[in-house]
Design a protein around this nucleic acid. Structure first.
Lengths: 343, 343
DNA sequence: GTGAAAGCGCTAACAT
DNA sequence: ATGTTAGCGCTTTCAC
């Protein structure tokens, strides 16, 4: 281990001068600085980050608190992490990754993480409609930026995808195509994004004067339950002519269900999926999808946090990214059999 | 910020005693310990990790050095990270994530990372056939475990998938089905795994006495070049009857190529892909695939490193995980037209 | 422009 | 069983 004092001895100067020369931001003769820099290079000196942090009270690191549970296929999170990591690397900030089950005591992990001074701030993911972590972090003055929003009371900085707008746009497209019975397949309603996505669905119906039929709406679906719900949805006499799926696996389940029921997509059943990825692009037919800028979200949320750490007094930023829809082969006007047309 | 001395003052004891009571492993009266623990809890005390690390010379963290570039779809890495993170969390070790382009100066990033005492050890990914990082880390006594192997000279601990065995097994299966013209589509030959996978292909041919035809082997393929290569491969007079694809996107390109050429899979063309995931499972037909235990690899490699850090003197471990093949709908005996049968 | 000294919060000898 | 003292490697007043 080579320390400042080794460099100091090498160049015959004091520890102080070496420190100043290396961190740069003080007055030290240009010649001296160069000499010191060379010596440090030669000795392959790397400042001990722990000692530095202890003194400066900055960890030069942020923490990313992610959910541990993922479906087998999940292209979103890797892109997202890539965005976060990219921004951190560019700014010389370390990234600590914490993947904790939400089953653990809510803020316990975060405490260990943030209050032990390991990180200067936190990136929070998978925000719940009422998320206890937010109050906890605010109470303890831990800087953080959320990816996602609680149901209401947004007194914290965040960057989120405007799920409501994305879904609304998609459902409006289905309505424009002539669909009136549009099913909604949603994820765990605990999370904020579920709330907003379903909200977008309701808004679209409301604006179009189409009544909301609770039988067409299923939330909290998982890979285990999706196929069953789709089957019952498609087998009824007043089946939907279109399905909005809040996740890729729900869309794939819809596709399977249609196939099993003898319905062809898009002629007998239109499908739009939230979150675009290779899986839904490669399906047969390729699915019309609402696409989020995965990597961009990670970059944005990381940049927001780093900015906040550098300029704590700046007013808090809340940013909404608008997803865009790619129309592919899974959407068409409804074609009904006579019996259905009566309804 | 609440520090040891605050807890000490609270209970009317010395800092030392508090420290010992909290870290546990020293002799302090059970009653005292409980009193201290309660006070710490009440004050919501969290030890400053930086100070602790500075003193103990242990960061209680490891670094994961991952490649920054990924294809749009990449289920492997998220599973892998999940495995690493899980093991770290279970042992109370922090995980620092570094996603660096390999374009950067080889070990530069690692130096900043490891030698600054931020981490106790490193997890190295995407090992190249000749990987300069390994010598660098060995020279500087930075403990590490590699996921992957260099071409030769394995003087370091690693955990890897036995790509050679996986590919050999797959190609032998194709041979057993009667295939003789088996193409190989490979990734960047810079990486160790490319070397081993192609080796498995050659071994299988050799053992079966089938001559190696360089025209059937294409390495260094990317999403940009895959379709072109597949097209030329399938258009020739002596086209392959089977393709081994070293990655999902190469298999999908093969599938597209077959479709474009009017060949049906598996009857006119068999396909086996390395790395199993939803994408190749959901394709039409579902692909026979060599499957790696993604998450398990991450767990294994992390466990190996943590073990090494706790017991530096233990002999170095090198572990090979054997992938297993799932036979699906993309493999069948070859069916040739008469003109082809002549060759 | 450079150096001496203090101290960040913690643990670890070494007393007692 | 508990306290005293020193010091991890660094930055930072404060002198000069």
């Amino acid at each position: 281990m080579v320390a400042v004092k080794d460099v100091a001895r090498e160049v015959g100067l004091s520890v102080t001068t070496v420190s100043r020369a290396l961190t740069g931001y003080d007055d030290v003769a240009a010649a001296t600085r160069e000499r010191i820099r060379a010596a440090a290079e030669a000795l392959d000196y790397h400042p001990n980050q722990m000692a530095r942090s202890l003194q400066t009270r900055r960890a030069n690191a942020i923490g990313l608190a992610m959910p541990a549970v993922h479906r087998t296929y999940d292209s979103f999170w890797l892109d997202f992490i890539g965005g976060v990591a990219g921004v951190c690397a560019a700014k010389g900030i370390d990234l600590l990754l914490s993947m904790s089950d939400s089953s653990e005591r809510p803020a316990r992990g975060l405490a260990q993480f943030a209050r032990s001074q390991r990180v200067d701030g936190l990136l929070l993911c998978d925000i719940e409609r009422q998320d206890s972590r937010i109050a906890y972090l605010q109470k303890h003055d831990v800087p953080f930026v959320a990816f996602g929003r609680t149901e209401s009371d947004h007194s914290y900085p965040y960057c989120d995808v405007d799920g409501a707008a994305g879904v609304m746009h998609a459902v409006e497209r289905l309505l424009a195509l002539g669909h009136r019975r549009i099913a909604y397949l949603g994820l765990d309603p605990t999370y904020g994004f579920s709330h907003f996505r379903l909200g977008g669905y309701r808004t679209a119906l409301l604006k179009a004067g189409v009544s909301y039929d609770p039988h067409l709406v299923h939330e909290g679906l998982t890979e285990a339950t999706a196929d069953g719900v789709v089957a019952s949805l498609l087998s009824g006499p007043s089946r939907p002519t279109a399905i909005f799926a809040a996740a890729d696996f729900l869309a794939l389940a819809s596709l399977r269900g249609a196939r099993n029921t003898g319905l062809t997509v898009p002629h007998n059943l239109s499908i739009i999926v939230f979150d675009d990825n290779l899986l839904v692009q490669q399906s047969e037919p390729p699915l019309t999808a609402v696409s989020q800028p995965n990597r961009r979200i990670g970059e944005e949320v990381a940049a927001l946090l780093l900015d906040r750490l550098s300029h704590p007094t700046r007013p808090l930023v809340q940013r909404l990214l608008v997803p865009i829809m790619f129309e592919r082969g899974s959407t068409a006007p409804p074609t009904r059999s006579k019996s259905e047309a009566v309804a």
